[in-house]
């Protein structure tokens, strides 16, 4: 019962932090919409063209905007010692990483769900593609949170080269992009691709708490 209470308190703290930093999140969403506008201005307003490439643009911009706030993932907690306090209260670093991933998924990625239908209106996407987009985004954003956790924990002691974290997220999100955009082109084997995406999400959900925990321990040892 105590353990459940700890988890509950963890999420309560995360939601408070989220409410304090809501401007940060809103700027991510503004970045997403502004880059859509930039794309449309650059390509012209040909409806047919926009409809055919809209989904790919939306996905790549979602990726870029989710790498914007990556530095916040662990850095504040690491610098003010909250990670050690969590650990002293009996939660392992791996489980802290898992909880962090879930809270990042809930508080940072999920608000993008509201902006997705609006973004697809700009590109005149057919309704079935919007449905697929939302469905794949729910799973894909979980993968993005896992990748963000890996790269953010890796960069805890990195004082020189910050863009390498975003590069890593982009590199490992290649399979995510392939399957989540491809799900529209192969409608008759929708479920096989969807299951593949689900499998990738579960693999990353298994790997990333372990590797983030290892990186956090390494960073705390050499702080």
């Amino acid at each position: 019962m105590l353990f459940v209470k700890k988890i509950f308190l963890f999420f309560k703290r995360e939601s408070k932090l989220f409410h304090n930093n809501i401007v940060d999140l809103l700027s991510n969403i503004i970045f997403f919409f502004l880059s859509i506008f930039v794309f449309v201005f650059a390509l012209g307003t040909d409806e047919q063209l926009l409809r055919s490439i809209g989904l790919g643009i939306i996905w790549s911009l979602l990726l870029f905007s989710s790498t914007l706030s990556l530095r916040k993932f662990y850095e504040d907690d690491f610098n003010n010692g909250v990670l050690i306090i969590f650990h002293m209260s009996g939660i392992s670093y791996e489980f802290i990483a898992f909880l962090k991933i879930i809270s990042h998924f809930l508080f940072v990625q999920m608000p993008f769900l509201i902006s997705l239908p609006i973004a697809s209106i700009f590109f005149n996407l057919p309704i079935i593609e919007v449905y697929n987009l939302i469905l794949t985004f729910i799973i894909g954003s979980l993968i993005l949170s896992c990748l963000g956790s890996i790269s953010a924990s890796m960069n805890l002691l990195n004082k020189t080269n910050f863009s390498i974290g975003s590069i890593l997220v982009l590199l490992f999100s290649i399979p995510l992009i392939i399957f989540s955009v491809g799900i529209n082109e192969y409608e008759n084997n929708f479920y096989s691709l969807f299951n593949l995406l689900l499998g990738i999400a579960l693999i990353f959900l298994g790997i990333s708490p372990w590797s983030s925990g290892a990186f956090i321990k390494l960073a705390l040892k050499n702080k």
């Binding site: 990195n158 020189t160 080269n161 390498i164 590199l171 290892a214 390494l218 050499n222």
Partner: peptide, 19 residues
């Protein structure tokens, strides 16, 4: 190329090698 960049990135040697 990322591996070469990572070699130039971290100050601490242990962190760099394991990463």
């Amino acid at each position: 190329v990322i591996i070469i960049f990572l070699n130039q990135t971290f100050e601490n040697r242990e962190v760099r090698e394991k990463t």
